[in-house]
Design a protein around this nucleic acid. Structure first.
Length: 940
RNA sequence: GCCCGUAUGGUGGAAUUGGUAGACACGUUGGACUCAAAAUCCAAUGAUAGCAAUAUCGUGUCGGUUCGAGUCCGACUACGGGCACCA
C-alpha cells in the first residue's frame, strides 16, 4: 500500500466536514469543558505564513488530546478583519473593503482547512461583520455610559496640513510620515478609554494567571505603578500653588528648584515680564517637538527660568521655578520638585544651569560596632594630571593603601582640613581644589589608635599644580610611605570601602540615588530612605501640604481613528454640544457605502457620508461621530463571542459563558504582550464588574510561540524573499501531517528557530517509516511481546506529560524512539500498535485516521477514542545501569537490581574492572551511593 | 541607561529535585541492496592522542559552594526582547 498523503488528507478532511466531527455541542455540560484558543489572524492579502501553523498546531494537539481524554472541547477560529490594508485597497480600487476582506478570509479558511485543524467552523466570526460589531458597539456604548470611555482634552500630534491627529509612529522627525508636513503638539478633545481606572485590577490579576513571567513583567512595566506623594508648593507673591508628584519626598530638604512642564496651566500667570518673551519662545519650540523627539534628544537638558519662586513647605526656602520639557505634562501633575543631589536628571539640569546642589542623604559604608567614637573627617584625592598618577599613602600590613585622610578639628572647613592633612602627611602644598564629593557615613576600626569610629566624611578632589613641597609633619604612630600610583594600582590595592567609594565619586560625577541616612534634613536626620518617606508623608498630611499618592505610567487609550474600515462609534454630537448615545435597537450602526474611501483634507472618510452623518430622530438632532474604533476594539472580546456566535439578543448567553470561561489555553505571538492582551483584560474586567463576564481574567494559561525564521536564520520577510516559506507549498509537497510534525519537532514552542528543508524531509521520513511498519512489515499481531512492554508504557507516559506541558519536540522524539524499538522486534502487539496511533493522532491526524480505519480495521473516526493509559509500574526496569565515579570522574558503569542494598552496590562498584585499575595505590576515603543514580568513590 | 531572557557537537536541539552531558533528528563518512541511481537498511560520528582497551579536555568567560555543577551562588562577555527624561 502506497502512502498517498494527498489522497488520504483530502479524504479525511472531507470526512470530518461531512460528519461534522468537530462541531462542539456547546450545551453539553455533562463532560468537563476545555477551551483552547488561538490568536485569530488578520486576513492579509498574502495568506498564511510559516509561523501561523506553529501556534495553531499546538492548540490543535492539545484539543485533540483533551477530546480523547473525555473533555468537551471548544477550539474555534475567526478573523480580525478590520484593518488598514483593506482600506488602502478600497482607496486604490474604489471597491468596498469588504470585498477584499471576504476574498482573503476565503483564502485563509481554505489554507487552514488543508492543515487539518479540528476547528468548529460553524463558530467562525469576523470582526468586520455587522452581526459581530453590533456587540463591539454595544460594549463600547456601555463603557461610554459608565464613564470609562469619554472625551478628554489631551496633547496629541496634530498635523495642520493633513488636518488630522497622528499616532507617534506616523510622525518622523517632527514631520508627518505621509507628505512630510510639520506636526505639532496640541491639546485636543479625544475619545479615550480610561485604562488607568483598571490599573490595580490589572496588576492584581497578573498574580493568579499562568502566563510567561516576562509577559507579566512587560504588563507591569506598562502599567508603571509608582507610589509616592503629592507635595504642594506656594508660589512666592501669589495666592496660587502647584502640586508636584514625587517618589522621594524624603529628599524634600534637598529641593533647590522646581520645574513645570511647558504646557503647565500656571506658567503664563506667574512668568515675570522680563522673562516672558524667553518663556514664550521656549514653549513654542517645545510644541514643535513630538514625544519621540523629546525623549530621543535626551542628552542635553534645556529649560528657562520663569522669574518666579516657589516656597518649600518644609523649610520655607525660596527656590526658583523653571520650565523644561524634561518634565512631561502627561505624567503626574506636570510639575516636579528638583533634588539635584539625588536625581540624575535634576543633577544634569542643575549642573548646566548652576543651581545649588544640597546633599540630604549619605551612603553608609563599613559595619557599625558598639562603642564607636563619632567624628567628622575628610578623604582627599590628589591627582597629577600630567603623569596620570594619584597620591596615596601606603600603610603596608597596617591598613594597606589609602588616599590622604584625617579628622576635622573644630571650626575647620573640610577644605582647610584637607589642605592641612595633605601638607602634614605628604608635604605637597601647591594644589588646585577641583570639587567636593558627596559625604559618606563610614564605620571603621583604626589600627594605629585601636578604636572603632563612625565618621561623617567629606571627599575632596584636588589637582597637583607643582611638585612644590614642605616637610612632612608626622605623628609618632604615622608609619607609612607616600607613593604616586596609577589607576590600576588604585583599583587593585585600595580596599578600604570609604576610600574606594570616594574614588568612585571622583571618577563619576553623578547624583547619589541609592539608600543611606539623611543629613541636612532637620527632623529626618539619621533616618534611612523608607523611614524618612513615611515620616515625611505624616508631616505633609498633618501640615496640609501634601499626601500619599499612587501614580501610573499607563495613559488614556485613544479610542478613535480617522479611518473608514473600523467599527462606527455609536455617538451623536448634538447641536447643544452634548452627546447622545444610540439606543440598543439602533445597533449595529452599519458603515455606509461610499463612492470614495479617502478622507479628504485629512478628515475622516465618514465625513463624506453626508446623509449617514446627519442624525435626526425623536427630536434629537446632531451629527454622528465620524471617527471609527481602533483595530484592537473587536479583538478585545472575541473570545467571549465564540461561545455563542449567533446570539442576536446578547453578546453571549450568560449560562454558556459561565460554563465555558475562562479560556484554558491561549497561544499567540509575544508581540501582543501589551496591546491586545492588555485591552482584552481591560474589557473583560469591565464586563466582569458589570456582571456580564463570569471571570476576572479571561486567559488562564498563555503561551507565546516563537518566531520561525528563514533558513538563513533571519526573520522571513521582504528583505530575503527567497527564504520565505509558504505553508501551502509544504502541504502540497510533503503533506499537512509532515508540516505539523516538523514544526512541532523543530524545538521548544516558545523558542525562535530557523526553518530547515532537510528537517522537513526528516519529518516526512518518520511518517513513511510508520506507514511501512503498519502496512508492509506484517509485525502486528494479537500475541504479546514483553520486550516492548516497558518502552510502550514509558512512551505513553512521556508523550502524555509532554503534550500537557506543550513540550512537543521531546514527545515526538519519544515516539521515534518507540518506532525504532518496534523495528527491532518481530512482533508488534495490536494493543501497542493502536495505542501508538492514538498518541500520534493529535500531531498527524490524517495518517493516523487512515491507519486506524484501514489497517487496524476500525470503522469510525479516531477523534473520540479514549486516550491510552500507562501503568507506572511497567515504565520502570527492575535492573538499572548506573555510573561509577572516582573523585567525580566517570570510570565505569555497573548494572544492579533496583532494590539492591547499598552495601552490595558498593561492593559491585569497587569490583568493576576499570574502577579497580584506578584504585590501585589509592586509599578509599569514602564511598557515596545514591540509589538508582550513581556511585562516587572518594580517594586520596 | 534601566528591566527581562538566552548561551550545550558541523546543525536543530535533549538532560526530573545537582547524580553516566550530547536523547531524538538533520548533516557527514563507510557499508549492504541495485546494471546504476533514488528509496530503504546497517554501522560510525564532541575534540585530541591511540590499532585498541583507555586517557586528557569539553555545556559563553573567570571564580566559588559540593563527594559530584550544563543545572546552585558571585563577577563578566555576547546576543535577543521590552521600556526609555514616568519625577
Amino acid at each position: 500500500m502506497e502512502y498517498n498523503f494527498k489522497k488520504i488528507e483530502k479524504k479525511w478532511q472531507n470526512y470530518w466536514e461531512e460528519n461534522q466531527t468537530f462541531k462542539t455541542d456547546i450545551w453539553d455540560f455533562s463532560k468537563p469543558k476545555y477551551y483552547a484558543l488561538d490568536m485569530f489572524p488578520y486576513p492579509s492579502g498574502v495568506g498564511l505564513h510559516a509561523g501561523h501553523p506553529e501556534g495553531y498546531t499546538a492548540t490543535d494537539i492539545i484539543s485533540r488530546m483533551k477530546r480523547m481524554q473525555g473533555f468537551n472541547v471548544l477550539h474555534p477560529m475567526g478573523y480580525d478583519s478590520f484593518g488598514l490594508p483593506a482600506e488602502q485597497y478600497a482607496v486604490q480600487t474604489g471597491n468596498h473593503p469588504s470585498k477584499f476582506t471576504n476574498e482573503n478570509i476565503e483564502t485563509f479558511t481554505k489554507q487552514l482547512k488543508e492543515l487539518g485543524f479540528d476547528y468548529d467552523w460553524n463558530r467562525c466570526i469576523a470582526t468586520s461583520d455587522p452581526a459581530y460589531y453590533k456587540w463591539t458597539q454595544w460594549i463600547f456604548k456601555n463603557l461610554y455610559e459608565d464613564g470609562y470611555a469619554k472625551y478628554v482634552d489631551m496633547p496629541v500630534n496634530w498635523c495642520e496640513e493633513l488636518g488630522t491627529v497622528l499616532s507617534n509612529d506616523e510622525v518622523i522627525d517632527g514631520k508627518s510620515e505621509r507628505g512630510g508636513y510639520p506636526v505639532i503638539r496640541k491639546n485636543m478633545r479625544q475619545l479615550c478609554i480610561d485604562q488607568a481606572a483598571f490599573a490595580e485590577k490589572l496588576l492584581d490579576g497578573l498574580e493568579c494567571i499562568d502566563w510567561p513571567e516576562s509577559t507579566k513583567e512587560i504588563q507591569r512595566n506598562w502599567i508603571g505603578k509608582s507610589i509616592g506623594a503629592h507635595v504642594d508648593f506656594k508660589v512666592d507673591g501669589y495666592e496660587d500653588k502647584f502640586t508636584v508628584f514625587t517618589t522621594r519626598c524624603d529628599t524634600l530638604f534637598g529641593a533647590t528648584y522646581c520645574v513645570l512642564a511647558p504646557e503647565h496651566d500656571l506658567v503664563d500667570k506667574i512668568t515675570t515680564d522680563e522673562m516672558r518673551s524667553e518663556v514664550e519662545a521656549y514653549k513654542a519650540a517645545c510644541a514643535l517637538k513630538n514625544d519621540m523627539e523629546r525623549t530621543e534628544l535626551n542628552k542635553d537638558k534645556t529649560g528657562v527660568f520663569i522669574g518666579a519662586y516657589a516656597i518649600n513647605p518644609v523649610n520655607d526656602a525660596r527656590i526658583p521655578i523653571y520650565i523644561s520639557d524634561y518634565v512631561l505634562a502627561s505624567y503626574g501633575t506636570g510639575a516636579i520638585m528638583a533634588v539635584p543631589a539625588h536625581d540624575d536628571r535634576d543633577y544634569e539640569f542643575a549642573t548646566k544651569f548652576n543651581i545649588p546642589i544640597i546633599q540630604v542623604l549619605e551612603e553608609v559604608t563599613g559595619t557599625p560596632h558598639e562603642g564607636e567614637e563619632t567624628k567628622t573627617s575628610i578623604v582627599a584625592i590628589v591627582y597629577d594630571e600630567e603623569k596620570q598618577k594619584y597620591l596615596t599613602i601606603n600603610w603596608g600590613s597596617n591598613g594597606g593603601r589609602l588616599f590622604i585622610g584625617g579628622s576635622r578639628r573644630d571650626c575647620e572647613t573640610p577644605l582647610e582640613c584637607a589642605l592641612r592633612e595633605i601638607e602634614e602627611e605628604t608635604g605637597y602644598i601647591d594644589l588646585e581644589f577641583v570639587r567636593e564629593l558627596p559625604r559618606i557615613n563610614h564605620h571603621y576600626y583604626a589600627y594605629n589608635k585601636d578604636k572603632y569610629f563612625n565618621i561623617d566624611c567629606t571627599g575632596l578632589l584636588f589637582k597637583l599644580k607643582s611638585d612644590k613641597k614642605t616637610h612632612q609633619n608626622l605623628d609618632d604612630d604615622e608609619n607609612f610611605s607616600v607613593e604616586w600610583v596609577d589607576e590600576d594600582v588604585i583599583i587593585n590595592e585600595v580596599k578600604d570601602e570609604l576610600h574606594k567609594k570616594t574614588y568612585e565619586y571622583s571618577k563619576n560625577q553623578a547624583a547619589m540615588t541609592g539608600d543611606g541616612i539623611h543629613i541636612n534634613s532637620e527632623w529626618l536626620n539619621g533616618l534611612n530612605k523608607m523611614d524618612a518617606i513615611d515620616k515625611m508623608i505624616d508631616w505633609l498630611e498633618s501640615h496640609n501640604a501634601g499626601s500619599k499618592k499612587v501614580n501610573y505610567k499607563m495613559r488614556e487609550w485613544i479610542f478613535a481613528r480617522q479611518r473608514y474600515w473600523g467599527e462606527p462609534v455609536p455617538i451623536v454630537h448634538m447641536d447643544n454640544n452634548e452627546t447622545h448615545t444610540l439606543s440598543d435597537e439602533e445597533l449595529p450602526l452599519v458603515l455606509p457605502e461610499l463612492d470614495d474611501y479617502r478622507g479628504h483634507n485629512g478628515k475622516a472618510p465618514l465625513e463624506n457620508a453626508i446623509e449617514w452623518k446627519n442624525y435626526n430622530k425623536d427630536g434629537i438632532k446632531g451629527v454622528r461621530e465620524t471617527s471609527t474604533m481602533p483595530g484592537s476594539a473587536g479583538s478585545s472580546w472575541y473570545f467571549l463571542r465564540y461561545i455563542d456566535p449567533d446570539n442576536t439578543e446578547e453578546f453571549a448567553n450568560q449560562e454558556l459563558l459561565k460554563h465555558w470561561m475562562p479560556v484554558d489555553l491561549y497561544v499567540g505571538g509575544p508581540e501582543h504582550a501589551v496591546g491586545h492582551l492588555m485591552y482584552s483584560r481591560i474589557w473583560n474586567h469591565y464586563l466582569f464588574d458589570k456582571g456580564l463576564s463570569p471571570v476576572e481574567e479571561p486567559f488562564k494559561k498563555l503561551v507565546h510561540q516563537g518566531m520561525i525564521l528563514g533558513e538563513n536564520g533571519i526573520k522571513m520577510g521582504k528583505r530575503f524573499p527567497k527564504y520565505v516559506v509558504n505553508p501551502s507549498d509544504i502541504v502540497r509537497d510533503y503533506g499537512a501531517d509532515t508540516l505539523r510534525l516538523y514544526e512541532m519537532f523543530m524545538g521548544p514552542l516558545e523558542a525562535s528557530k530557523p526553518w530547515s528543508s532537510s528537517g522537513v524531509e526528516g519529518a516526512k521520513k518518520f511518517l513513511d517509516r510508520i506507514w511501512r511498519l503498519y502496512t508492509e512489515e506484517n509485525k502486528i499481531t494479537d500475541e504479546d511481546n514483553k520486550n516492548l512492554e516497558k518502552i510502550y508504557h514509558a512512551t505513553v507516559k512521556k508523550v502524555t506529560n509532554d503534550f500537557e506541558s506543550l513540550s512537543f519536540n521531546t514527545a515526538i522524539s519519544q515516539l521515534m524512539v518507540f518506532i525504532n524499538a518496534v523495528y527491532k522486534e518481530d512482533k508488534f502487539p495490536r494493543v501497542y500498535a493502536e495505542g501508538f496511533i492514538k498518541l500520534l493522532n493529535p500531531i498527524a491526524p490524517h495518517i493516523t485516521e487512515e491507519l486506524w480505519n484501514t489497517v487496524l480495521g476500525h470503522d469510525d473516526t479516531i477523534a473520540f477514542e479514549s486516550w491510552p493509559e500507562y501503568d507506572e509500574a511497567k515504565t520502570i526496569d527492575d535492573e538499572i545501569t548506573i555510573g561509577v565515579q572516582i573523585n567525580g570522574k566517570l570510570r565505569g558503569t555497573i548494572t544492579v537490581s533496583l532494590d539492591e542494598s547499598e552495601e552490595r552496590i558498593k561492593e559491585i562498584a569497587l569490583n568493576e574492572e576499570n574502577v579497580k585499575r584506578h584504585l590501585e595505590d589509592k586509599e578509599v576515603v569514602k564511598v557515596i551511593v545514591i540509589k538508582g543514580k550513581i556511585v562516587n568513590i572518594v580517594v586520596k
